[in-house]
Simulated scan of single mutants.
Amino acid sequence: MGMSVTIGLADHQDAEQILKLQYLCYQSEAELYGDYSIEPLTETLAAARAEISETCVLVARLGPEVVGAVRGRVDADGTACIGRLIVHPRMQRHGLGGRLLVAIEDRLAAERAAARYRLFTGHRSEGNLRLYRRLGYAPVSTEQVSRHLSLITMEKEASASVAAAV
């Protein structure tokens, strides 16, 4: 009998597993853009612990192992900024990324009054773009960060999340 993946709040004890998983998951992004100095690959354990205590961080667990995570915070205007959505490579393409994204949206709306959601991804990250579009996000801006990277900002209203789930 196999174990099922559960999603819940991260605590400071999860920081090291999250950071190791993040490092693993962002290797493909770094390779895609030819930049291994991206923030997810240089984040410190202290910074990860601080983010866990200051924002909403969810983890997906398979038994005791953290196999996915996502972070979010809500600004004063009600905009939830979602980031660092990661899923272990062996667990990808099974819907876990979508489950994590919907879980953080639900939590940020219920507990922190999010009115809209915002996230970003690189222009070459086709898998991310497909997932976000499928879950109702639409591009609202593009910013050229470097010669090799443009960041696409995507948003959706919180009410769109409820409609998509029904």
Rank of each mutant, 00 (worst) to 15 (best):
S150L: 06
R73G: 02
I52A: 00
S146V: 09
E29V: 14
L131W: 05
V87E: 01
V66M: 01
G72M: 08
R84D: 06
A164Y: 03
V5D: 06
T55M: 05
T142G: 12
Y117N: 06
Y26F: 15
A80K: 07
A158N: 01
H88I: 04
M91T: 04
A30L: 13
E31S: 02
P64G: 05
E51A: 14
R116N: 05
R118G: 02
G2H: 08
G136S: 13
D106N: 12
S141T: 14
V145D: 05
M154T: 06
N128A: 15
G97M: 04
I38L: 09
L100Y: 07
A10M: 03
H123L: 08
R73V: 09
I152W: 07
G63R: 12
A114C: 07
M154A: 08
V66E: 03
D11F: 03
E155D: 13
S4N: 07
E51R: 15
C81H: 15
A160T: 07
A164Q: 09
S141F: 08
V67E: 02
A69L: 10
R107N: 04
L119A: 00
H123W: 12
R71N: 00
R112F: 13
G136D: 03
I82F: 04
E111L: 15
E43R: 15
D77V: 09
G95S: 01
R134L: 09
D106W: 09
A47F: 07
L62G: 05
S28P: 07
Q27L: 11
Y36V: 06
A30Y: 10
A80C: 10
L85M: 07
P64V: 09
Q144V: 15
Y36G: 01
E105N: 03
V66D: 03
R112E: 11
L135A: 04
E29Y: 10
G63M: 14
V145I: 15
S159V: 14
L96Q: 10
L24K: 08
C25E: 05
V74D: 00
C56R: 12
S53P: 05
V70T: 04
S37K: 08
R112P: 03
G122P: 05
R49P: 01
N128L: 09
G122F: 09
Q17C: 01
S161K: 01
V140R: 09
S146R: 11
E31P: 00
D75S: 12
V67A: 03
Q92R: 12
D106F: 05
I104Y: 02
R118K: 13
G95Y: 01
D11V: 13
A164P: 05
E39Q: 10
T6N: 08
P40S: 08
R116C: 08
G78R: 11
H94P: 04
E43T: 14
I104Q: 03
M1C: 00
C25I: 14
A113W: 13
E29A: 09
L58R: 07
L41Y: 01
S4F: 04
V162G: 00
R49N: 06
V102T: 11
V87Q: 03
E111P: 01
V102P: 02
A109K: 09
A165V: 11
Q13H: 13
E155A: 06
V74S: 05
E157S: 12
G68N: 00
N128S: 13
Q22G: 08
Q17V: 07
V74I: 11
